[in-house]
Design a protein around this nucleic acid. Structure first.
Lengths: 242, 242
DNA sequence: CCAAAAGTGTTCTTACTACACCCATGG
DNA sequence: CCATGGGTGTAGTAAGAACACTTTTGG
């Protein structure tokens, strides 16, 4: 009631729809997110997640991939880009009613982006610093980044997406460091090794070895072909679920 | 890069934003979803998920709760209503560009809804029938319902939300039947009993018993106060994660 | 007494933790 | 030859699966 009437074309309240990206990477022993310096009000001079309007004939996921490519040069086939959640509080943008659909991607260590030719335009910032203070980020991006972080942490348990943080070829120790940084917990190297090499389809050995981390040469692996990790790599204490 | 310029107020492409609800319940040994018969084109006469426009000053979750109350009489405090995902393919509604934010709720067995006074307006339909054929539901609601079903199944493993399908006071066997119906797998009654009574905070005993299911009297329980199930109640073979 | 459902106990197996120990390189 | 990290072996423990068995009602 009211539904059918309101659903009449031409009589609906207009919204702006954007996509925002939570792009995470691991660099210098820290988990970082890509942020953009806002050049215009509102929140002029503050950092914000990259994002932009969905175009009139564009799918949501296509808009997210386009933004990803614009900001990082990565294509949608190269990284796993997944929908995170949508945010639409009426006052989240002071200018107009905006609903944003947030996407999450875990990317390998990239060169510092300089889209727009402005060195101060975009940068990777440690997630810990960005979330330290609730209002450090523009709009409701603190919330979005928090949600993205929690999703990324959970994904590492049950999916092989942690490899997305690594170079195409990586050692078990490099992968373990990713887990340790994202979860903020030390993991037993020996048990971790057994778990990841034992999970079918997670890793495929290249046959090559490397000594780039010192010590005995380590096997190099590539990401395997599975999308599920079984058995999962579990954190000690699971976080609240909802 | 186009972003700042396009983000200028007044120059954004207008969208309609709706919320759609995946309301699931268990009745007569079947998992069912609430569907509405469409009275107007497009998809006139077809079944669709309940939903409607987000109002100009309304939060997304508030819109979902309002729709929930309109369709079922349930309030947002009574049931757990969670955001599922957003869908915005350009051609998903032939009349205009619509982005919908889907919400999921697991509800107890309710009387057949008759909102609008029309008995044919809304009903509970078995999910299996609704998903049998890809185009049985209007718009992209097949996809949305599939996603909601998969989310509900996953939720039962790690959260106590399965109790949402039960009456306020229920027996372990009644809860087990919910799991069996949602997952489509038989579960060992004895091991299930141990798991759910052993998971801290999942169930609180009322001290009452009932013989309404025949046999030896069974303890009655209420939903406990935890939001995480540890240890989880696992299905045999986990589904692909992404 | 018997059927039916509730609930407990027991055994086997899997997977995790912790940690001892050996391996292969660079310096 | 030794420091460093890579990798395997093993013992103890937590939790799941399968299933025998006891308990308590209704008829």
């Amino acid at each position: 009631m009211g539904w059918l009437k309101a659903y009449d074309p031409g009589s609906y309240p207009p919204f702006a729809v954007t996509v925002d990206l939570v792009l995470l990477t691991v660099q210098q022993e820290e988990l970082s997110a890509l942020v953009i310096k806002r050049a215009e009000p509102p929140f002029k001079g503050r950092w914000a997640l990259p994002g932009g309007f969905v175009r009139p004939e564009e799918d949501l996921s296509a808009a997210a991939e386009r933004e990803l490519t614009e900001e990082t040069g990565l294509s949608g086939e190269m990284v796993h880009l997944e929908q995170l959640a949508s945010y639409g509080t009426p006052d989240r943008d002071p200018r107009m009613r905006v609903v944003t659909v947030a996407y999450l991607a875990l990317t390998p260590n990239l060169p510092v982006p300089t889209a727009g030719g402005d060195a101060a335009y975009a940068r990777w910032s440690p997630v810990g610093e960005l979330l330290e203070v609730p209002r450090r980020l523009a709009f409701d991006h603190h919330r979005i980044l928090s949600d993205g972080l929690e999703r990324a942490r959970a994904k590492l348990e049950y999916s092989p997406l942690g490899t997305g943080f690594c170079q195409p070829e990586f050692t078990v120790a490099e992968l373990r460091q990713v887990y340790e940084i994202v979860w903020g917990t030390p993991l037993d190297p020996r048990n971790f090794h057994r778990k990841v090499t034992g999970a079918p389809g997670f890793l495929t050995a290249t046959g090559q070895t490397t000594t780039r981390n010192g010590g005995r040469p380590a096997q190099l692996y590539r990401r395997g072909d599975t999308s599920v990790l079984y058995p999962p790599i579990l954190r000690r204490e699971p976080e609240p679920f909802v």
